[in-house]
């Protein structure tokens, strides 16, 4: 208890919280955390209970305990791989230094380390791929949405296309995108892997639509008075868009972007599995093909990681919206 009390003292040792306040604070925290905590505990118990009763060809279905062990082993593998990498570069450097010492004009080679990609490397690759695809989609979707919102004619002509492509599954796009990338992206010194582009563009195709649709709605629902102000002032189109349309539509644009990012993240995993682009999707696929006794546990870790990352991406978008939006009082959820 003394340790806890110490936390609430400032540098001069003055107590910031009276004990009664501390109790209130704890009670408040308890109330806020109790139900989510209870939900998680019940879920874990159910999971463990069910898992114990399922036996698969790869052994028993992993419960929370096995999954926890798997995640620890994934962390350990990652650390081992990093140590190996560090050792590799150390050896290379020593060797080169030795060579140079003997002959200052010696031809020194520096080779990159090509070890196995760990779980955490795969996560980074996935995040990179989804960001790329999402960014491309946003660059197309926001202006298109603004155009649709501003002009009924543009909307009328673009809407059928949006409505047709919106429900198309990423799995349907993937073969086409793969072939197109192979055909069109021909370069001797490619900046990107083909499999990376295939996954990223599949993500783009699937996460265009929510942003387009929501931006359109946001732009069409601008307050009539504000549009009239703009007309009375005879604002040029660009100033009109910049100073009236975009600020008005920001909340809807962000709603679209969040839906898009969530879709993109879901699509990415499927795309990576099929395109064999390194990433979480490939990690799961490889584990599935591996079929070792701890494969299921490792897949389960990936599943949880995908969920938590998706959740954090959404929170990140909310935080960005909070920074950009003019309305600091708005409750974002």
């Amino acid at each position: 208890m003394t340790e806890i009390a110490a936390i609430f003292r400032n540098e001069k040792g003055k107590i910031l919280f009276a004990p009664s306040q501390l109790i209130l604070l704890l009670r408040h925290l308890g109330k806020a955390l109790a139900l989510p905590f209870a939900g998680i505990v019940i879920f874990l118990m159910l999971w463990q209970g069910v898992a114990n009763n399922i036996t698969t060809s790869l052994g028993q279905f992993p419960g929370p305990v096995q999954v926890w062990d798997s995640s620890k082993s994934l962390v350990a593998e990652h650390q081992r791989e990093r140590e190996r990498e560090a050792a590799f570069y150390q050896r290379q450097e020593d060797r080169n230094a030795e060579k140079l010492a003997k002959d200052p004009l010696a031809d020194v080679k520096i080779r990159p380390y090509t070890g196995k990609a760990t779980f955490f490397d795969q996560i980074l690759t996935s995040l990179y791929t989804v960001s790329f695809g999402f960014l491309v989609a946003s660059i197309i979707a926001i202006p298109l949405g603004i155009a649709c919102g501003l002009s009924e004619k543009v909307y009328q002509s673009v809407n059928p296309i949006i409505q047709t492509f919106k429900p198309v599954s990423p799995l349907a796009w993937l073969p086409l995108v793969t072939i197109l990338v192979s055909a069109l992206y021909v370069s001797d010194d490619p900046m990107f892997e083909k499999s990376f582009l295939t996954s990223a563009f599949t993500v783009t195709l699937c996460c265009l639509w929510p942003t387009v649709i929501n931006t359109t709605v946001g732009v069409t629902s601008i307050d009539r008075d504000l549009i009239n102000v703009s007309r009375v002032l005879q604002l040029p189109s660009l100033v009109h868009v910049r100073s009236i349309v975009i600020p008005s539509a920001i909340p809807m644009i962000f709603t679209g972007l969040r839906l898009s990012l969530a879709t993109g993240w879901m699509v990415l995993i499927a795309a990576e599995m099929l395109a064999q682009n390194p990433g979480l999707g490939k990690f799961i696929w490889d584990e599935f093909q591996n079929g070792s006794s701890d494969s299921l546990g490792r897949i389960m870790v990936a599943v949880l990681a995908i969920g938590l990352i998706g959740f954090s991406l959404d929170r990140l978008m909310l935080a960005i919206q909070g920074r950009i939006s003019w309305d600091k009082q708005a409750i974002l959820r």
Partner: peptide, 14 residues
């Protein structure tokens, strides 16, 4: 021909 609107019509972000 400036218009004063009933509900002020100020841009809330400015």
């Amino acid at each position: 021909r400036a218009v004063v609107f009933q509900n002020h019509a100020l841009l809330p972000w400015l």
